[in-house]
Design a binder for these strands. Structure first.
Length: 470
RNA sequence: GGCGGAGUAGCCAAGUGGGAAGGCCGAGGUCUGCAAAACCUCUACGAGUGGGUUCGACUCCCACCUCCGCCUCCA
């Protein structure tokens, strides 16, 4: 069964086929952060969805080459740098570093390339593309010396968002002072330098300034992946105008169809409301870590709702994520321990268990139906727990089961953090085991309190004591 | 005003023209020195509302209600 993905362009679920004649390599571009502050969980929902997409494609045998750009020059970064009294590059570096730390915390696989807009080779490419568009008469320089894309030259503009431009209603966000433009919808390719930009400026044949936001993505995407991409992702709010603009610029420069499959994830809400600073429900990853949640718990909460549905992010949901992960952890621990018992010839897994494994991946094939896939995983957990309870699985079969989990986890990245037990706590646990074998419960309980005083909880399970941090 | 998405149990949520997955919470049980955990079992005669098509509708169609998004540089 092939991978099927919903294409924003056609509004249909389509069989995914890469351009590569061998059907192996996939070129994927994902819009990255603007590095003027810490990314919030809404941003990370998009990156986690893209991570799931990449990991599932890889599980299905594709070789994914992925680019995620960093927008490190625009109005917000310039404003932020000025407010902080720092040079633009120093200001954005802080947030670039923080962004990569957050990616690791959330176990998001690194893209192959993280081009930044201000890197000289990309600025040069943007200037080259703008120059070409000017030559072709597709772009023009207005009285304000900025360069704009002439929308009249690209009738397909609006096709991705399915907007009829003739019927657009001004929303009040259009700056009506921009009378220099021929058409209200014409977007900036190059913004002429002005004093507020300070030392942020690059020289171009038509004058000093800085690139517009849209051209950054077109330049970096085509520089690294070529004129035709298999997949381009982003949040729904990027559909219009950002991705429309990317299509217009790229296709006018290359003459080729820019993107084969457009994927967009829905927004998230927090506690049933739109996330906003004024509503007090605006979270960065750091905020949640500060509340005691782990990256993988946040990952679980953001990953396990289908990307095309609005996600209602709640603290209760995070607690649910913690409990669900605990169930997975217990099961993984159980099968990991069991497989080391007496060797034996084992055999193939019972059919119902391997079917759950296949069901997991088949569900993801269907436009990343993560809920269906998780249902299969939890069925696999319950059914194999039950089989173990009844002594129906051999150690060899359990080892096979562990392999199934490992292949599932290569997509989910939900494995438990390895926990390091301090030596003194380990020693206390060992002493407690000794007194327990003598059935000295008073000493045992006293040691349990002592272990608790070190910040650890010890639980006596069938398989011996288990430690967890308080 | 235009375009689009969504309403399924206390919460999150899947699939399907014919038996309503799964997770959290909750209840019962097994295990256990105690505690905790774990595991097993159970938990919607019902799908926003009202119509319609059909032998049969949560699923298809129509209307209405509610929520969310986009409509020119927000993931």
């Amino acid at each position: 069964m092939s991978v099927r993905l919903f294409n924003t362009y056609s509004r249909q679920t389509e069989d995914f086929t890469p351009l590569d004649p061998a059907g192996q390599r996939v070129k994927m571009y994902t819009c990255g952060p603007t590095v003027y502050n810490h990314a919030h969980i809404g941003n990370f929902r998009a990156y986690i969805f893209e991570d799931l997409l990449q990991r599932h494609l890889e599980a299905r045998g594709y070789e994914v080459e992925r680019v995620m750009n960093l927008t490190d020059v625009d109005d917000k970064t310039i404003r932020g740098a000025r407010a902080a009294g720092r040079r633009l590059a120093d200001f954005t570096q802080v947030y670039k570093d923080a962004f990569f730390t957050d990616l690791d915390t959330l176990r998001i696989k690194r893209a192959d390339h993280f081009p930044a807009a201000t890197e000289p080779r990309y600025i040069a490419r943007m200037i080259a593309m703008i120059g070409q568009l000017l030559e072709q008469g597709i772009a023009y320089q207005a009285e304000d010396r900025s360069v704009y894309f002439r929308l009249a030259k690209f009738p397909a503009y609006g096709a991705l968002a399915h907007l009829n431009l003739d019927e657009l209603r001004p929303s009040g966000r259009v700056n009506s002072d921009e009378y220099e433009k021929e058409n209200i919808g014409d977007f900036a390719l190059w913004k002429a330098w002005d004093e507020a930009d300070g030392e942020v400026r690059w020289e171009a044949p038509w004058g000093a300034g800085r690139p517009g936001w849209h051209i950054e993505c077109s330049a970096m995407a085509t520089a690294l992946l070529g004129p035709e991409l298999d997949i381009h992702c982003g949040g729904v709010d990027n559909i219009f105008p950002h991705h429309e603009a990317e299509i217009a610029q790229s296709e006018c420069c290359t003459g080729k169809k820019f993107v084969r499959h457009w994927l967009h994830c829905a927004h998230l809400m927090v506690e049933g409301q739109k996330m906003s600073k004024s509503a007090g429900n605006f979270y960065t990853l750091r905020d949640l870590i500060g509340k005691g949640f782990t990256g993988r718990e946040v990952r679980y909460a953001l990953l396990t709702v289908n990307y095309r549905l609005p996600l209602n992010f709640t603290i209760a949901g995070l607690e649910g994520a913690r409990a669900a992960l605990g169930r997975i952890d217990e099961w993984v621990g159980r099968i990991s321990d069991f497989r080391f018992q007496v060797s034996d010839l084992g055999g193939a897994l019972p059919a119902n268990l391997s079917e759950r494994h296949e069901g997991f991946f088949n569900a993801l094939d269907d436009d990343l139906n993560i809920s269906g896939a998780m249902g299969q995983l939890f069925d696999l957990i319950r059914e194999s727990n039950s089989a173990l309870d009844h002594g129906q699985l051999t150690p060899a079969q359990t080892a096979e089961l562990l392999k199934l989990w490992e292949s599932i986890n290569r997509v989910l990245a939900f494995e438990r953090e390895s926990i390091v037990v301090p030596a003194e706590v380990a020693a206390l646990v060992e002493r407690r085991q000794q007194v327990r074998s003598d059935k000295d419960w008073t000493a045992s309980d006293r040691l349990r309190d002592e272990i608790a005083a070190h910040g650890w909880i010890v639980k006596d399970t069938k398989d011996g004591p288990k430690l967890s941090p308080k």
